[in-house]
């Protein structure tokens, strides 16, 4: 465990050094993140200037949900995208061999090798937004905070597992570098409460692509709208996805024949 923490520290330091080499990109990425966040607020502003509620959620409740969405948007950008999107390249070029030969968990290595630090400020904004929204709706209670934390942890497991499953398909579909683009496309749906969608789409977003469990469920807990069915299902879905991702990874590695040798 200690060795893994030490490795993590080395990886993060190295990533920061890599980032600082490209200062213009650092600036552009900060701009990009600010514009994207502002655009999100602009849509909500326009929507609530024309209507009173969005799928039964008030403006302050939607702000909490948007905060939860921003957390995962940032985490994907900091940890998941820079690592797992490289997996296709590792496999195509045969670099995967190096990871498999290291005396540590190969899944750990391919998951945390690179981090993109410029999204950290967005995490802070997101937490501030959640606190503000909870306070405005008068739901800033300890029980809500505990439930929110628990469900955020479940959502984190789901997001990681989904990314890992998506990218493990690279072992077979060597050419699908764009597969993470699909995540970004569908995840945008998560910036709205699932109740704002038509019923057939609601079903799709809850059970087929479980985006509802990632943002709507934790946000419901934060504003005191959570029903226990969804809370329990959340734990169940997280555990299921995690196990599937593990089994799938082991299966993929066992069938990996390397590209160059």
């Amino acid at each position: 465990m200690k060795r893994y923490l030490r490795l993590l520290q080395i990886f993060v330091t190295n990533s920061v050094q890599l980032e600082l080499e490209y200062r213009a990109n650092f600036f552009f990425n900060t701009c990009n993140s600010l514009i994207t966040t502002a655009t999100g607020f602009l849509i909500l502003y326009v929507m609530f200037s024309k209507a009173e509620s969005l799928g039964g959620w008030s403006f302050d409740e939607v702000l909490v949900l948007y905060g939860v969405y921003m957390i995962f948007e940032a985490l994907v950008d900091i940890f998941l995208y820079p690592n797992l999107s490289r997996m296709t390249e590792y496999i195509r070029k045969g670099d995967m061999d190096f990871f498999l030969l290291k005396p540590i968990s190969s899944q750990f290595m391919v998951s945390v090798r690179y981090t993109r630090v410029w999204m950290f400020p967005q995490l802070l904004i997101a937490f501030a937004l959640i606190a503000y929204g909870m306070n405005q709706t008068g739901q800033l209670y300890l029980t809500n905070i505990i439930l929110l934390t628990l469900l955020l942890a479940c959502a984190l497991v789901m997001v990681y597992a989904l990314w890992f499953i998506m990218n493990t398909t690279a072992f077979w579909l060597v050419k699908v570098e764009n597969i993470s683009e699909l995540w970004f496309a569908f995840f945008q749906a998560a910036s709205f409460p699932v109740s704002a969608f038509p019923s057939w789409a609601r079903f799709l977003l809850t059970f087929i692509v479980p985006i509802a469990f990632i943002t709507t469920v934790p946000a419901s807990a934060a504003v005191g709208r959570l029903t226990w069915e969804f809370g329990v299902s959340s734990l169940f879905v997280a555990a299921l996805l995690f196990v599937v991702s593990q089994v799938f990874w082991r299966y993929a590695v066992a069938n990996y024949t390397s590209a160059s040798s």
Partner: peptide, 15 residues
């Protein structure tokens, strides 16, 4: 990957 307009379509139709 560029199905964003379709997502927004559903939200605005709901509103």
């Amino acid at each position: 990957a560029s199905s964003l307009p379709l997502i927004m379509m559903m939200i605005w139709m709901g509103l």
